[in-house]
Simulated scan of single mutants.
Amino acid sequence: MPITLLCRLCPVLLFLLALGAPAPSYAGGDPPAASSSVTKTEKTGKAEQPQTAEPTEPPENPQQPEQPIQLERDEEQKPPPISLTPLRATYSAAMDKGVTINGSATRLLEPQPDGTWILRFDVESFLADIDESLRFRWEDNQVIPLSYRYKLSGFMIGSRERTIDYDWENQTVSGNFEGESFSMALVPGALDPMGYQLQLRQDLKAGKTQMEYQVTDDGDFDRDEFAVIGRETLDTELGQVSTVKVEKVRAPRKKRSTVMWFAPELDYLLVRLVQIESNGSRYEINIEDANIQQN
C-alpha cells in the first residue's frame, strides 16, 4: 500500500512518497472432604448416637482444571495467524498545486527463499525516480523490519539516500540520512517507513479499527495513529469496489488530512489515498491494476 508520511518532506517529495502510499476463577472446586461425626442434641437434652458417614472414595479420574484454563488463556492472548499474500500493484497519481504533476508507482511484495519478505516501491515520473525497499520477517502477525533502503534521484532534485538497519538480537537500530548517522535503542514493535504501511493493512485484515505505530525517523520514533471512519463504494479502474475508509489521526487544529481506502475483497489492498496539506495542496493516488496471489 504505497503510503509514506507526506508531512515530513517538501511538497514534491511528499507527492512522490504519497505514491507509496491499524484469572478466570477456579471453577473446579475442592474435592469433597470426608464427613466427620456429628452429634445432634434435641430440646429434651438427650443426645443421639453419633452417626459416622461412609467414607467418600476419590474419583477415578480427578479433574485438572488448571491446565485447560491455562490453554484458554494462551488462546485468548495469541490471535489467529494472518497470512501475507504476494502482490504487484500499480497506481496513478496527481498533485494539484497550481500545476498538475502526474506519475506512476509500482508496489511489489514477494517472499524470499530464506523465509524473509521483500517489499519494494518504485516510482517513475518526469521529475524524479524513487527506489525504496524493505527486507523483513513476518512473525505472529507483526512486521519485523531488518533493513530499509531509500533513494531519490531526478531532474532538478538533489539525490537523497536513507538507510536503516535493525539489530533485534542487541535491541538497537542504526541508520544514515543524507550523511547524518544515528543509533538508538529499539522500542517494542518498532517499524520503518515502509513496514508500518504493510502493518496497517494486515491489522485491518485482523479486524482492528484503531491502530498506533512507532515509526523510526532519523534518531527518534514517531507515533502514528490511524482509525477506521466508515465504509464507501468507489468506482476504480478495477470496477466498483467496496472499501474501508481510514484516516490518519491528527491534532484537532491541524489542517492537514490523510484519508485512505482499502478494499477487503482485494485482500485489503490500498485503492485510493487523498492528502490535503495545510496550504490547500491536494495529493491523490488511485489503483490502476493489481495482481494478488490469493491463498
Rank of each mutant, 00 (worst) to 15 (best):
M156I: 15
D129A: 14
E139A: 08
E169D: 13
D140E: 10
G175P: 06
M156Y: 12
N170D: 05
Y166Q: 02
F177N: 07
T163K: 05
P145E: 03
F177E: 14
M156K: 11
I130Q: 01
N176Y: 14
S147A: 05
G195I: 06
S181K: 15
I164N: 01
D140Y: 04
G175V: 08
E180F: 03
D167P: 06
G154S: 12
N170L: 12
N141S: 01
E161K: 12
E132I: 06
R160G: 07
L134N: 05
W168Y: 02
V187C: 14
M184Q: 14
Y166T: 04
M156G: 15
W138D: 06
V143A: 01
Y150M: 04
Y150K: 04
N176C: 13
R160N: 15
L146A: 01
I144A: 00
N170I: 03
G189D: 11
L152V: 11
W138R: 02
E161D: 14
L186A: 08
S153W: 11
D129I: 07
S153E: 13
W138S: 09
G158Q: 10
I144F: 00
R137F: 01
A185K: 09
S183I: 12
D167I: 10
Q142G: 00
I157N: 10
F136S: 11
E169K: 12
F177H: 13
L186D: 07
L146T: 00
E132K: 11
L146F: 03
R149S: 07
N176S: 11
W168V: 08
A190I: 03
F182Y: 13
P193I: 09
S174N: 14
P193L: 11
D165E: 14
G158N: 10
G175S: 12
D167G: 09
R162D: 07
A185Q: 12
L191H: 09
Y166P: 01
E132G: 00
D140Q: 06
M194D: 06
M194E: 02
Y150C: 00
I144K: 03
A190W: 03
Q171I: 06
